[in-house]
C-alpha cells in the first residue's frame, strides 16, 4: 500500500539577489517526497495561487499543486492544519525554516501540536517505511548522522543535508495544474504590531580588556594567549604514552 505523503512548499528568497525563488529546503522536501511516493506526492502551498515561483516547484515533475488561497498577512498555520486534518496523510514534509516572512521555523511544530503527531527535526533521509514505522536519518552538526524510527503519521523537517532538489523544467512547470481552494482567513494579529526593517549588519564584538592599572593593560596587549599548560610525557614508555592519548580520546568521546 503506498503511503500518503504531503510536501509543504513556500516562496524562497535568493540569498544574494533577494529575488523570489524555489526555497532550498522545501525543494529538498519535494525531492524526498518524489523519491518516496513518486507521482502520488501531494504538494501544498498556503498563499497566492498566481505566484510564479510555484511553477518552479511544479517543474520538478508535479502534475498539480494544491493552493490554499489566502492573503500574505493571514496566518498560514490555521488553513494548513484544517487542510492536513482532512487529508489523512502519513508523512508531512517541510523545510526547517522558511526563507521569507518571520522564518521562525515554528510552522511544523505548531502543526504537529495541533494534529497530535510526532515531529522529527532535521531529517537527512527517510530510509524505509515498514509496518507503520519509518526509519529516518537525522542530520547532526559536523556531518554526523543519527538513525531513529518514528511511528506514522509524523511531520519531518528536511535539513540542507538531504538530497538536493532536481532541476526544474520550465515547460512542464507551466503546464502543471494549480488547484486553488480558499484557505482560512485568520489575521495574524500579533504580527501586525511588529515593526520590520531591512537587516542592519551586526556589530562585531570587540575584545574588552577590563584592566585596572597600566601594567595590566600592557600585559593584556602584549602577552601571548596563555597556552594552557598541557601535560608533557617524555620519559614514559611507549605504552604509557599511547594509553594517555587513548584515555583522552575516550574521555572526549571521539572514539566509540
Amino acid at each position: 500500500m503506498p503511503h500518503k505523503i504531503i510536501s509543504l512548499i513556500s516562496v524562497g528568497r535568493h540569498p544574494q539577489s533577494g529575488r523570489a525563488r524555489r526555497s532550498d529546503q522545501d525543494g529538498r522536501a519535494v525531492e524526498l517526497g518524489l523519491k518516496l511516493s513518486g507521482s502520488q506526492l501531494e504538494v501544498v502551498h498556503a498563499g497566492d495561487s498566481e505566484e510564479p515561483v510555484l511553477r518552479q516547484y511544479a517543474g520538478m515533475g508535479l502534475a498539480e499543486i494544491t493552493i490554499l488561497e489566502q492573503d500574505q498577512s493571514m496566518d498560514a498555520v490555521a488553513s494548513l492544519s484544517t487542510y492536513l486534518a482532512s487529508r489523512d496523510a502519513d508523512i508531512v514534509l517541510t523545510g526547517v525554516r522558511s526563507e521569507s516572512g518571520e522564518s521562525s521555523g515554528m510552522v511544523p511544530y505548531i502543526l504537529a501540536e495541533a494534529l497530535g503527531w510526532p515531529l522529527v527535526a532535521r531529517v537527512a533521509d527517510i530510509v524505509e517505511i515498514k509496518d507503520g514505522t519509518a526509519e529516518v536519518l537525522l542530520a547532526l552538526p559536523r556531518g554526523q548522522r543519527r538513525a531513529a524510527t518514528v511511528k506514522l503519521p509524523f511531520i519531518a523537517t528536511i535539513d540542507s543535508a538531504a538530497q538536493e532538489a532536481r532541476q526544474s523544467a520550465y515547460g512542464p512547470g507551466l503546464r502543471a495544474n494549480m488547484v486553488a481552494q480558499s484557505g482560512a482567513n485568520e489575521l495574524d494579529e500579533l504580527r501586525a504590531n511588529w515593526s520590520e526593517a531591512p537587516a542592519k549588519p551586526r556589530p562585531k564584538r570587540l575584545k574588552m580588556v577590563k584592566a585596572k592599572t597600566a601594567a595590566d593593560r600592557f600585559k593584556a596587549a602584549t602577552a601571548k594567549p596563555a597556552g594552557g599548560s598541557g601535560k608533557v610525557m617524555k620519559n614514559e614508555s611507549t605504552e604509557e604514552k599511547a594509553q594517555a592519548i587513548f584515555d583522552l580520546l575516550i574521555e572526549e568521546k571521539v572514539i566509540r
Partner: peptide, 8 residues
Amino acid sequence: GASSSLDI
C-alpha cells in the same frame, strides 16, 4: 527574519 534579511 526572512533568511537574515529583515530585522523584526
